[in-house]
């Protein structure tokens, strides 16, 4: 297996990742005033979540040797993760809008790690390039090579997320800040419904 293919696959998956992550990330970036530096940390945190997910997938693909037919259960897991991440996003934004302490994720330990968790849960989105990457991993069956392969896959797909760092100017508009939180609630509800739909579809 040519591990460099991981990077190319990542680039092809990136468009899908961008479309999937944009609704999650955009409300995050405009909901609170942040500097470019803080946005950078937010993106790093989000991407770390994704990287962790990819590494787990890489190790699993090598260790388990799952056959193609069993991807159905992977989709089922993904739908559960989608429902969970949408609930987190819902609580996060509702907490910010109404300043409810028990909902405001800052009050709970988990809350400070929301971007990481969202990235982690979104990482399990078995889009066609990731399924292909997974198949490569299963065929190779080598944990070290798979880890390298999935790191390159991650790097390829991460390129599309980087422009979010420069959205700091948007959060300076007071209306947009509040609007970002409201949009976040809508996005959460939408992904929740999508997750339920996927759960019954697979």
């Amino acid at each position: 297996m040519d591990t460099l293919n991981g990077f190319l696959l990542g680039i092809s998956a990136g468009v899908n990742c961008f479309f999937m992550c944009c609704p999650y990330l955009f409300p995050f970036f405009i909901a609170q005033k942040r500097t470019i530096k803080k946005n950078l940390f937010l993106v790093i945190e989000y991407l770390s979540g994704r990287l962790s997910a990819y590494l787990i997938i890489g190790i699993l693909s090598a260790a388990l040797g799952i056959v193609v037919g069993e991807f159905k259960s992977a989709s089922k897991i993904y739908s559960f993760l989608l429902i969970f991440s949408s609930l987190l996003l819902f609580m996060y934004n509702l907490g910010l809008i109404f300043e409810i302490k028990f909902l405001n994720i800052k009050a709970v330990m988990i809350t400070n790690r929301i971007p990481f968790l969202t990235g982690f849960l979104n990482g399990f989105n078995f889009c066609p390039p990731l399924i292909t990457a997974f198949s490569y991993g299963v065929a190779e069956g080598n944990i070290y090579k798979n880890i390298l392969f999935f790191i390159l896959f991650f790097l390829g797909s991460a390129i599309y997320i980087l422009p979010f760092i420069f959205t700091d100017f948007l959060a300076k508009v007071e209306n947009l800040k509040n609007a970002g939180r409201i949009a976040g609630v809508f996005v959460a509800v939408w992904f929740f419904i999508h997750g339920i739909y996927l759960l019954f579809k697979v």
Binding site: P23, I97, N178, A179, R181, I182, A183, W190
Partner: peptide, 20 residues
């Protein structure tokens, strides 16, 4: 005031949803 920003939030959501 916070609810008055509803259409702005809704608009952002619509742009993202149509993009996806």
């Amino acid at each position: 005031g916070k609810l008055r920003d509803f259409p702005l939030g809704f608009w952002i959501f619509l742009i993202l949803a149509s993009l996806v």
